[in-house]
Amino acid sequence: MQKNYKFSFLILTVLLIVIFFANISLGSVAIPFKDVFNSLIGVTTSNESWQYIVIDYRLPKAFTAVLVGSGLGISGLLMQTLFRNPLAGPFVLGISSGASLGVALVIMGASIFGGFFATLLLTKWSLVIAASLGSFLVLLAVMMVSAKVRDTMAILIIGLMFGSITAAVVSVLSYFSSAEQLQQYIFWGFGSLGNLSWNELLIFVFIYCIGILFSVASIKALNTLLLGENYAKSLGVNIKKSRFVIIIATSLLAGTITAFAGPIAFIGLAIPHITRQVFNTSNHKILLPAVFIFGAIIMLICDSIAQIPTSDYTLPINAITSLIGAPIVIWLLVRKRKMIF
C-alpha cells in the first residue's frame, strides 16, 4: 500500500517539475527552450532581454503559482476536515471578504483623502497591506466570536455571516464610486500571479512556510477529527488547541495568498476533492503532500493558459481556475459516481 503511494508521488513530482519548466518556457514572448534553460543556469543568452524576462518575470511568477496553488489547496483541505463539510474552502472564515473590504476601502475610499494621499494610497504595497489588514481584522472578529461558541459548525456560520457583512459594505462603497475606481477594484478581484518581485516573494515564502509548518503539525489531529470531535477528544486530542492551530495555519496561508495574488477562487475548494478522488484516501499524511503537488500543478497549468502563449493578452487567472477546475471536479464525480470525503 505504502509502496503504491511512493510510486504515485514520484510520478507527480516529475510531472510537477516538467510543468514548472513548461510554464517558464511559455509566455507572451516566444523564447526558445534552449535560451530559457541557459538563462536559468546563468549562461548568457542570445538576447539579453530574454534572460531578464525569464529570471525576473517568469520565474517568480511560476514560484508564485506553486505557492498559491499548494497553499490554497492545503488550507481548503484543513477547512473541509475541520468543519466536516465538503463545501468548505480556505475562505469560509471570511478571509477573502475581509481582504476585499480592505482593498475596496483603499481603492474606493482613496478619493476621500484626495490628491496627494490618493496617489500614495494606490501603490501596490498599499493594496497588499490593506488586504492583509482587512483579512486579519475580519478573522480576528470571527475568532473572538467563535471563542465563545463550543460548536465548530457555529464558526462556519459566523465566518459566512461576516463575509456577508463585508460584501454588503463593499456594495455600498461601489455604489458611490466612479467607474474608474470600480474597474480597478474589479481588476484586483481577477487575481494576478505576476508582478511579484523577488523581495516580495521572499516575504511571501516566509509566511507561507510558517503556515505549512502549522499544517504539518496538525496532521495527527486532522486524522483523528475524521471520527468526529467527541471521538477525537476521547483519543487525547486537545480540540480547542488543534482548532486554533488549524485556523491559524489557514489564515496565514490564505491570508498572504490573497494579499499578494488577490482572491483566487475555486482552487482551495477543488484541489482537495481532486486529490481525494485520485488517491482514494482520507489519511492526511498522504493527502497533505498530495494536495501540495496537485495544487501547484493545476495552478501552473491555469497560469500558462491565462497567459495565452505568444499573445499579448492575459486572461484573468480567477476565471481560468474555475474554467479548468470545475469541469475536472464534475468529471471526477461523475466518473467515480460518489464523493469521497
Partner: peptide, 8 residues
C-alpha cells in the same frame, strides 16, 4: 454518533 468520514 456516526463517524464523520466513512471513507476510512
Amino acid at each position: 454518533e456516526q463517524v464523520v468520514s466513512k471513507n476510512l
